[in-house]
Amino acid sequence: MSEFLKIENLNVTFGKETVIENLNLSIPENAITVFLGPSGSGKTTVLRSISGLNRNAQGKILLDGKDISELPVNKRNIGVIFQSYALFPNMSVFDNVAYGLKAQRIGKAEIKQSVEDMLKLVNMNEKANSFPDDLSGGQKQRVAIARSMIMKPKLLLLDEPLSALDAKIRVELREQIKEYQQKLGITMIFVTHDQAEAMAIADNVVVISDGKIQQQGAPWDIYTKPSNEFMATFIGDHNILSGSELKSLGINNLSLEQKYLIRPESITLNKLAESIADEVECNGQIISAVNYGNRIQYVIAKDTLRLKMEALNHTLPLKIGSQVKVFINKAKILQLN
């Protein structure tokens, strides 16, 4: 992996509390890296350390081969998008976007052209003369993104930029951010606690918990090859069973002391089609069914064991209490470290 941004031995303490201890991380260029983690995991702290906003950060930060650890915030050429948009309420949309260019003492005509182009890109050109208070949340965030992107930052950091928006706008804006990234070739770090959002937008995911990196990789790898039990339970739904529990389901040749992961989609019910060679079959009873619209999540009891599985919602839902045949794909059983 290329090392566009390299963090070496980052340490952050607040008072007596150590929030980040000896963190090392490399981020590739021209991609969206997502910092994913539960609230309070330290992901925003890492982000603020990179931007220079965190004055308690110690360690080395190299951006494009240059050590920026000692540079003040306004000399790092890093953009940050905040959850609260941080638009300047006393300035129009146009002036907000032009703000950073004015600091660079660029000619008026050039500023006007750049701002107009940028507002067109984020589809806000018709609101150039509006003030932030007159905009919706999604519009505000697009202006904030334009204001940062116009500076052509080497790195754009987005700190939970979609968390304050409603579900529909969130998905729209998420797609747009991805589009801007590809169009302008900006390296982005996107912080979120929402794993679905992370999976959808990321080229590269860094999962952080308790100030430590749990795993880094492509979204597919993070989901299919979780490095430990935390990763298995944090990303996606899961069944975690011991080797002896799996033996009781008829799956042999596993270490009895080990823990194993089975994703809900690796389990099927009452199939009419032929079984896959590697499947194990057992009987169970449905004890819970939750309808999520396009899919239904069932919990199946087999003696004292509980198995979560998901089915697409294209048949009549099975009733609670029904006896079912359960098929587990043995090839998808993953040993946890």
Binding site: P72, V73, N74, F82, S84, A86, F88, A103, Q104
Partner: peptide, 17 residues
Amino acid sequence: SKDFKSMFEQSQLLGYG
């Protein structure tokens, strides 16, 4: 009444001291 901290930080990120 407003998020002045983010606004102040944003101004510095955009190049002003």
